[in-house]
Design a protein around this nucleic acid. Structure first.
Lengths: 348, 348
DNA sequence: TTGAAAGCGTTACCAA
DNA sequence: TTGGTAACGCTTTCAA
């Protein structure tokens, strides 16, 4: 224990931590006055406040938010669930949320689901027990039980990063399939005809599945189908998986002209592997990614990709939440589409 | 609001969310029995428990942990503060913590400080108001106020990723300067003589500063000093910063033989920049990183680096916390050194 | 500007 | 195995 708090003041209750009542005693006021003095907008005379703050300092008092929440019925936090913390796309979204929450009096509690709806369900349950004032989710796939809990919770919910067919409440995101389709069209415009796609196997990464669907649809519509698909492993998508998958792709369809990857990380892995095998990128083969990670702008060749507005997703989602929490209803519809942009670089 | 919870049961209190008392009424028992039935180890007859769980389900009851914590004086969570969520080293540590906490009944609440001790102080304050049962920090640099709050809090504290001179409580980490010095020695063993170092400017990234100190010391001790140092920007260290810094390095000391970087990300940036300028790595110049990020094992040339046991740091730190929370005192001393390993690859 | 009393929803404690 | 009662530490509400 960090038990160096030995030299305690005379007024200190020797057993345990000081409470607001101890502070009130010490300062010669009531607990209500202490409570007010510790809030921003509490109407307390300057003199009294000073005395109280001295007492707080002297006793080493720390407000107990659990007790406060119980009484005020406001917990002062919102929950956000992301698939992985080690992913710059999602951490940008988290930054957007944090920034939007600044000065709102609300704190962010982050949870990560490891791309698993089961873990998500458990997290939602334990989050709800702490009574968040709102909750932000990644994606639109949840267990039925999770959905039920959220609907019953009575708090505003924002699903992000996808456009669910049957939203729980608010949505801030983009169509993964449409964005990937746009990338296909852009590359077809550059003259590529034999398209390959590298992505995860499972239903686990729903955004990945949506992107694959968009790829297949677009290739088909362009009359270039069927698209060549290599599926590998489970998310989180790693560089290594991209390297392995491109090998499979080349074995199965050696004449593939351009490979689209579910993420920039797998694109980078594929790129490195091709170069290691002495292939020129582009030239022998072209490669594109998704997500506009920093790495894609600095490796070489620089990787063609799509920038989706990760930060904006977070910022808008949190904004929605704040509106719903404070203002009550939300003006306009409940779907916010975020922007994206195909970024053509050297790799494709 | 996710207000689809319309069809409520007869027993449901129409105003607001159901409480434990509502569940107790519905099931025909006391709240204490409900409380027991909802705990793992609660001694309740199978029959009663079944009735209660039905009532819970029927009413859509969710335990209010704030009330529970207030009463039991256990909040069921520990806090961990990391500099950045978008950093695979720290997210590995977070995973280690999460894994160690599994089945302990404790949840992890993650906060990120953005490499700022001021933000850390604010986070510590708001975390402490929620009464965590223990807290894990990154590094040993904190504001005096933060230190004071932690010491007064009475909860176990673990500082990680460094060996502070004056620890608050427990420590799980390694000597950043010694590890970097080891890397210098390993590279000197490979014949390099003119050493450069690329790292952040500020006192903000204390681990970076420690690594730089270790670099300078080792170069000096080998009689190869003084080391050439380029400082740039503030953390988080980016790929781009590494690219920029290596340019400065080459302008100032064109005959530098090997460049050590504060992180693999800056090493990668430096590597890409050198290649872009037509330099051969290694050959014209050698580059090494720190942290053994995935990228270093897949780019090429593969980057020489140091693997520090990020996951182990988290696991051990959380283990320490659990011991301190449950067992009371901790056997042995309060410093746990974690292992590391220089990984020689192709880049240096 | 300040205070008194009454909860907030749960669990500890003791008793049955 | 079950229940009654009394906290837990704060804020709401109403009154001064």
């Amino acid at each position: 224990m960090a038990d160096k708090a030995k030299g305690k003041g005379a007024h200190d209750v020797s057993a345990g931590k000081p409470t607001m009542a101890d502070v009130a005693d010490y300062a010669g006021v009531s607990t209500m006055t202490v409570s007010r003095a510790l809030k921003k907008d509490g109407r307390v005379s300057e003199d009294t406040r000073k005395r109280i703050l001295q007492a707080v300092d002297k006793l080493g008092y720390v407000l107990d938010q659990a007790a406060g929440s119980l009484s005020s019925r406001r917990t002062g936090f919102v929950a956000a669930l992301v698939p992985s913390i080690n992913n710059s796309n999602f951490s940008d979204t988290a930054r957007g949320i944090t920034d939007a929450l600044e000065n709102s009096g609300l704190q962010l509690l982050l949870g990560y689901t490891d791309y698993s709806t089961e873990k998500e369900e458990k997290l939602i349950q334990s989050m709800l027990q702490r009574r968040p004032e709102g909750i932000i989710l990644t994606g639109g796939s949840h267990t039925p039980q999770a959905r039920r809990m959220l609907e019953k919770s009575g708090i505003p919910v924002v699903e992000t990063w996808e456009i669910p067919e049957d939203p729980i409440d608010h949505v801030v995101g983009f169509s993964n399939s449409e964005v990937m389709a746009d990338l296909v069209r852009a590359l077809a415009g550059r003259g590529y005809r034999k398209f390959g796609y590298i992505g995860g196997t499972t239903a686990r990464d729903t955004r990945g599945s949506l992107r694959r669907a968009g790829f297949l649809k677009a290739v088909d519509e362009l009359g270039l189908g069927p698209g060549r698909v290599i599926s590998f492993g489970v998310p989180p998508i790693s560089i290594e998986q991209g390297a392995q998958a491109v090998v499979s792709m080349l074995e199965r369809w050696p004449d593939t002209e351009v490979v689209l990857c579910v993420s920039d990380l797998s694109a980078f892995g594929a790129l490195m592997e091709c170069q290691r095998r002495g292939m020129k990128v582009p030239g022998d083969i072209a490669i594109a990614g998704f997500g506009d990670y920093e790495i894609s702008a600095f490796c070489h060749p620089r990787i063609t990709t799509v920038n989706v507005d990760c930060y904006g997703i977070g910022k808008l989602a949190a904004g929605r939440l704040l509106q719903a929490i404070n203002g009550g209803g939300v003006a306009g519809d409940e779907l916010t589409l975020t922007s994206y942009k195909v970024i053509l670089r050297e790799s494709a």
